[in-house]
Nucleic acid binder design. Structure first.
Length: 695
DNA sequence: AAACTAAAGCTTTTT
DNA sequence: GCTTTAGTTT
């Protein structure tokens, strides 16, 4: 692709951003302003025109989804496979660096990555050991996470002993936790970043090496970086200063997990010579939707000033309605979706229903199900979080690294081998005395002179594991099968979980052991594709980065949005407002905001007021429906009693073969909506149309 | 060690 | 209300 083709279809600001190849660059990219396009084209410009080796560009994102999208788009632009390129999440790229260099800071290169559950388990066992209240583990974990996000290790924490909320008990747990991780040759998610920073800060020769290896650095969603991540990036950029960050302070919605929007300001301080480019043309929403969004976000103080604009026309007004309760709200949403769908302009994949809290999804799901509308819930429990997958990955982890005691404990009694908490406790004591890993200790027990009963229980397990470790080298699907059979897991596990295991085995084809373990540890995701022919249901948080022609935001009520936890604190209230802003700006054509007067939250029925944010949208952009003409009971036209339901293929004497999209109407007068490739969507009455059903 | 019952929680979420 | 966890029984 030549230079001309590469810049084709970019507006002047986007072009500037692509062409500004050297030196620090801060791109403030408003919602829908073509941010990803700029990043990917910039990557392609660097490689194809400036002949920068593609492997010298480090491009970091937050989520696997964003990383994958970037990889695919870059692959298409530069016409090369993304394999071997440094495009990925902070965590994935960091672990790749550490796999090469970590021995410098006292871990071995085959370290394991602990996920959230692993960390929880470790913290709980430490609390037990210290005779502290075990239920505190979640609070402690989140405290450790936020300290690590600010690069405060246990030593630093102890040294800064003057802080208000310093507490010695916590400091001891933190210290112990970090020691245990090292003992197990394990890193948790936050360590992946923190240790990389430590490594580069401490060993300038290693840092120099990567200054040479990477000539350019790019960061996506910069407003979501925490201090540690920013430090890592700025260290790597320290030599050449070719660092390009893209972000939007108005879309920062992850302060609660350590993201530091202030990094944008820090960046300007650290790189004072940086060029600032604003992308303000929005290519997504109608003028009305964009104006509504701008009025809302304008209430937040301390923003980087920006004014989004669009060439699109006004479009529909924003529809706002209030119902009596959450059931009515859900049914009204379902009916609206169905109504728009039946007009034929939109398919179900064009709709998203957004909400603040996951517990709202229940009613919405129920209503959609009753109306026969296909939907999918994005978020929830992901594939790699499932128990059976985590179990088998733990087997892999132990086979790969028998010192990994946390994974060992996860599987030691699954399937049941009669090694319960009491026995594990005894082995742990023994391990502590001898200063050995759990597995080594178990081997000693088998060959030593312990109680015969204890020996017998442990011998079988050790034997199985040793056989599996000996088979470490065989190709992956085979190894997984071997695990399932030798351990008896396949026989033991519930029927309905077997399918997931099979899927996992199939997906392991062609991967190596370390690679599979890393993917399973780092890939936690809500990475399922949206769209298809289903309505997407998700939280306002998970919708970031997506767009839909029609967007519903449900539960626009004080206490829900803004959430009641955030109402007292101004900073948190601003974040809630940004969340609402993110939701609004996802909509291309139609935006519907709704709320209920009464809502059941947990067990109690609460009187709700409509959201203060709703009143921040000027009335001229809105169409209010106060009295909602709907009953929650269904009229029978939702239950067509005919075999011609959506998806069935039919033949029409005149228009040939088509696919039924929907059917509705009374039992004696059923109407179907059929999509014929030749003539498009037609509404037919079954009585007259003479349709023939095909297999 | 497993199965049961009482009690406490409960915003958002990625890696 | 429902799900997770802590404590008790069998």
């Amino acid at each position: 692709m030549d230079k001309h083709a590469m810049l084709n279809g970019l507006n002047p600001q986007q072009r500037d951003a692509v062409l500004y190849a050297n030196g620090p660059l801060l791109i403030l990219a408003g919602a829908g302003s073509g941010k990803t396009k700029v990043i990917t084209h910039r990557f392609a410009y660097l490689t194809n025109i400036l002949k920068v080796p593609a492997t010298s560009i480090l491009a970091m994102t937050f989520t696997n989804k964003a990383a994958m999208e970037m990889k695919e788009r870059i692959e298409r632009l530069i016409g090369k496979s993304h394999k071997g390129l440094w495009i990925g999440t902070f965590h994935a790229l960091s672990s790749r660096l550490l796999r090469r260099e970590i021995d410098r800071i006292g871990f071995s290169r085959d370290f394991v990555i602990y996920d959230e559950d692993d960390s929880y388990n470790l913290i709980r066992s430490i609390l037990r050991e210290f005779k502290m209240h075990e239920a505190l583990y979640k609070g402690i974990a989140s405290r450790i996470t936020s300290l690590k996000a600010s690069l405060i290790g246990p030593r630093e924490f102890l040294e800064s002993e003057n802080g208000f909320d310093f507490d010695e008990k916590f400091a001891r747990v933190y210290m112990r936790y970090q020691d245990k991780l090292r003992e197990n040759n394990a890193l948790d998610f936050d360590d992946l970043i923190m240790h990389a920073v430590k490594l580069f800060e401490r060993y300038s020769d290693v840092l120099d090496k990567y200054h040479k290896e990477f000539s350019h650095i790019m960061i996506d969603e910069f407003q979501d970086t925490n201090i540690a991540q920013y430090r890592l990036a700025s260290l790597l950029a320290g030599g050449h200063r070719n660092i390009c960050v893209v972000g939007d302070d108005d879309q920062g919605i992850y302060k609660f997990r350590g993201a530091n929007v202030g990094n944008i300001l820090t960046f300007e301080k650290d790189f004072p010579e940086c060029r600032l480019i604003r992308l303000e043309q929005n290519y997504r929403s109608t003028q009305t939707i964009l104006n509504g969004a701008s009025s809302v976000i304008a209430r937040n103080p301390d923003r980087k000033p920006k004014k989004l604009w669009t060439e699109r026309d006004k479009g529909e007004k924003i529809c706002c309605f209030i119902t009596d309760d959450e059931d009515e709200e859900a049914h009204y949403i379902a009916r609206s979706i169905r109504g728009l769908y039946l007009k034929g302009k939109y398919s179900y994949g064009d709709f998203a229903v957004l909400y603040r809290t996951n517990l709202q999804s229940r009613v919405l799901e129920e209503a959609l199900r009753v109306h026969g509308i296909p939907y999918r819930v994005i978020g929830g429990v992901s594939f790699y979080q499932r128990r059976e997958i985590k179990d088998i990955v733990s087997y892999l982890k132990v086979i790969n690294n028998p010192k990994d005691s946390v994974s060992l404990k996860r599987i030691i009694n699954y399937p049941q081998r009669g090694i319960g908490d009491a026995t594990i406790g005894r082995i742990e004591d023994e391990a502590k005395k001898k200063d050995k890993s759990l597995f080594e200790t178990m081997k000693c027990i088998v060959s030593g002179n312990a109680h015969p009963k204890l020996k017998e229980k442990i011998r079988d397990f050790v034997k199985t594991m040793e056989e599996l470790i000996a088979s470490k080298g065989i190709a992956l699907p085979g190894l997984l099968w071997l695990i399932l059979e030798k351990t008896g897991y396949l026989k033991w596990v519930e029927e309905e979980r077997v399918e997931n295991l099979m899927e996992f085995i199939n997906s392991s084809e062609g991967k190596d052991l370390q690679g599979l373990i890393d993917t399973a540890s780092l890939f936690t995701g809500t990475d399922e594709p949206h769209g298809g022919n289903s309505v997407s249901l998700m939280t306002l948080h998970s919708v970031k980065g997506l767009e839909f022609p029609v967007v519903f935001i449900a539960g626009v009520e004080d206490g829900l949005l803004p959430h009641f936890h955030a109402i007292k604190n101004p900073e948190e209230l601003y974040e809630e407002r940004r969340l609402f802003y993110v939701g609004i700006t996802r909509a291309k054509d139609i935006l519907v905001l709704s709320g209920a007067r009464k809502r059941r939250i947990y067990a109690s029925l609460q009187e709700q007021r409509s959201s203060r944010f709703l009143r921040e949208i000027p009335a001229e952009y809105c169409h209010y429906i106060e009295r909602v003409p709907v009953s929650t009971s269904l009229s029978k036209d939702f239950f067509p009693s005919s075999p011609f339901v959506a998806g069935v293929r039919v033949r029409h004497p005149r228009w040939g073969i088509g696919v039924v999209r929907d059917s509705y109407g009374e039992t004696d007068d059923i109407k179907v909506m059929v999509n014929f490739p030749s003539v498009g969507i037609k509404r037919l009455s079954l009585k007259f149309a003479n349709l023939e059903m095909l297999q």
